[in-house]
């Protein structure tokens, strides 16, 4: 950069201005471009940086600014306008809020574990069988392209006490004498969340297992491992980062989910997102709701980050 300032100046100045002095450029450019990019001058970087500005501006205005506002207002008293930590203190000291948070976390953790366990073998099979994959993946992906609301409707049709297909079938088969009321309690919600979780997990994990070279398992088998042993000692560890990422995504999705809890009743269990919504609209405790939203967000992002840190520290990949 320092040894040829003139050249840098002309080439970049030209490019930024946006007109091409073709002949001088053909002479200068190959040399310029062949250099390692670390040598590029600040003008060059500014040129490329300029292209990222519109996107950055939009993100700053519509994501960073609102989130900053949210954080700011959560630290300001709603009535007096003074800086205060009382919304956080109030939430975190309230056994009611903590109980709801704990319920939510337990629900999310349970759903995450179960759906990953259910999805793992399926994803493995899909990743290894090309034919099966081309038939089944579109089928499995359809639920991913539906609003949670539609899943909620489906769950009502499936599980409703008197009209639901499951209860009617079980009663008709003589297994049940009267309908079970699982829809409007935690089992109904768990099933609905589990459905969504399995769908997410299969999609991500299939992709993850596809990146693991199947020949590595063949190698393990020629070295004396059984097929199952090979899958567990070779493919699983290699897929671990993807599995953790999928789990983190499912966890944070469930923790902050609103549609399912409200559609499938909402009183038991009382999920934290429902509480936030009620604080925001019914109780008009906006700043309290902001604080609680930030607590939940911190929890969701914290889990994801912890998973990443865990992986980078103890991760065994490469």
């Amino acid at each position: 950069m320092a040894d040829e300032p003139g050249k840098v100046e002309t080439v970049d100045g030209k490019a930024i201005a946006g007109y091409a002095r073709r002949f001088s450029m053909t002479a200068a450019s190959p040399e310029r471009l062949a250099q390692p990019s670390a040598d590029r001058g600040w003008r060059d970087r500014l040129f490329y940086r300029a292209f990222t500005f519109p996107a950055l501006l939009v993100v700053a205005g519509t994501a960073v600014l609102p989130l900053a506002l949210l954080l700011f207002w959560s630290l300001v008293d709603q009535r007096s306008g003074e800086a205060t930590l009382r919304y956080y203190a109030q939430s975190l000291a309230s056994p009611y809020f903590l109980r709801i948070l704990l319920t939510t976390i337990l629900m999310a953790a349970g759903v995450t574990v179960v759906s990953v366990m259910l999805a793992l073998p399926m994803a493995y099979v899909l990743a290894r069988h090309t034919l099966l994959r081309s038939i089944l993946v579109p089928m499995i992906s359809i639920p991913r392209m539906l609003p949670f609301v539609v899943v909620g409707y489906a769950m009502v049709l499936l599980l409703a006490p008197y009209t639901g297909v499951m209860n009617k079938a079980l009663i008709a088969a003589g297994i049940l004498s009267e309908p079970v009321f699982i829809l409007f309690g935690w089992p109904g919600q768990a099933i609905a969340f589990g459905y969504a979780g399995v769908v997410i997990a299969i999609a991500i994990l299939t992709g993850v297992f596809m990146t693991v070279d199947p020949q590595l398992e063949d190698a393990a088998v020629t070295l004396g491992a059984g097929r199952l042993e090979a899958a567990l000692t070779v493919s699983m560890p290699l897929a671990a980062p993807g599995i953790v990422a999928a789990a983190a995504l499912i966890f944070s999705t469930v923790v902050t989910s609103y549609a399912i809890p409200v559609m499938l009743n909402s009183r038991t269990p009382y999920m934290v997102s429902v509480l936030i919504y009620n604080n925001l609209y019914s109780l008009q405790e906006r700043h309290l709701a902001y604080a609680q939203a930030i607590i939940v967000t911190a929890l969701a992002i914290g889990v994801t980050t912890a998973a990443q840190i865990f992986l980078s520290r103890f991760g065994s990949r490469r």
Partner: peptide, 20 residues
Amino acid sequence: LVLLPDAVPSITLGIALLAL
């Protein structure tokens, strides 16, 4: 930064956008 809206739970982003 651009992926931030993806990392933040959509319920939080929704509330934040409402506030703005």
